[in-house]
Simulated assay, not measured.
Amino acid sequence: MNALGRYLRDRCKELGLTSSELARRSGKSRQTILSAGTHGGGLPAIETLVQLALVLKVHPLRLMQLVFEDLELPARQQQAYRQRGDKSAFVADVTIPDGHPVMVGSTFTKTWAVQNVGSVPWEDRYLNCMDDELLVMTKSGERLVVAQRLRPTVQQVAVPYTAPGAIVELSVDFRAPDAPGTCVSYWKSHHADGRLCFPKAVGLSCCVSVISSRAAGDELG
């Protein structure tokens, strides 16, 4: 099972969906979904990812990020380093769970809880933002942003010394974009020299639903 497959499995559990229900609602066969979530199953079509994202209530870019997670370029792989006995596990979204509504232009703090479930203490490590601007060029040469982005106040957060078995909370301050939509920010752990700590891990993400003041008023009303 690849990164996308693990995410589909876990997200379905969160939403109380079976694989059959996911297939029915997305209009995709169970075989198509299984192939997308399996190593060697080939790259899923963008239309498939969009339909799955709608059912799972996440931005399609979140699923695309997971697809590319298993397609790192050789140069990127050479910068990764996995020490024997070094393992991590996601514990909880302490603040701002996936899909949480935030106002356009607002600032908020996202906090994740992560546990060192290996035998190697964590020291001299950083949580780095992995977001890239998605742009397209028009025929006239105009640069257009494909998707709205969350804007973190910093691109890197120091990970405190964390002994094996300990749980650490990591926080990042964000500013929401000025237009409504679903936004995702993606983060991964690095050593001090820039190498990835867990090259095959999904990493941490902040996924929010950015709403306008009018929409917020409708919800309250």
Rank of each mutant, 00 (worst) to 15 (best):
H39P: 02
Q83G: 03
R62V: 05
L71V: 08
H59C: 03
V145K: 03
V145E: 13
R175G: 02
E133D: 08
E133L: 12
G194S: 03
M137W: 01
W122V: 07
T107W: 08
F90N: 05
C206S: 15
T38F: 00
A45F: 12
V94Q: 08
A92K: 13
K57E: 15
G27M: 15
V208A: 07
R143F: 14
E21R: 11
S140Q: 15
L127F: 11
R25Y: 10
L204C: 11
V172Q: 08
D98Y: 13
R82K: 14
V91N: 11
L220F: 00
L49C: 06
L56P: 07
G165T: 12
L135H: 03
A23K: 03
G42Y: 10
D70W: 00
R143W: 12
A89T: 01
L8M: 11
G99A: 05
V202S: 14
M1D: 00
H59D: 15
L61A: 10
C183T: 02
L34G: 14
V157L: 09
V91C: 13
V114H: 06
V208E: 13
V159K: 04
S106E: 15
A163F: 02
T182E: 14
Q148D: 05
R6E: 13
S35Y: 09
V168C: 14
R149W: 00
V146A: 15
N2M: 13
D178T: 08
R125Q: 10
T109H: 05
V114I: 12
S119A: 14
R11Y: 04
G141D: 04
G165H: 12
T32A: 15
Q79F: 02
A45N: 14
P180I: 05
S212L: 00
L63N: 11
S26W: 03
L144P: 00
S20V: 10
H39E: 11
V146Y: 11
G118E: 02
F198G: 01
P74Y: 05
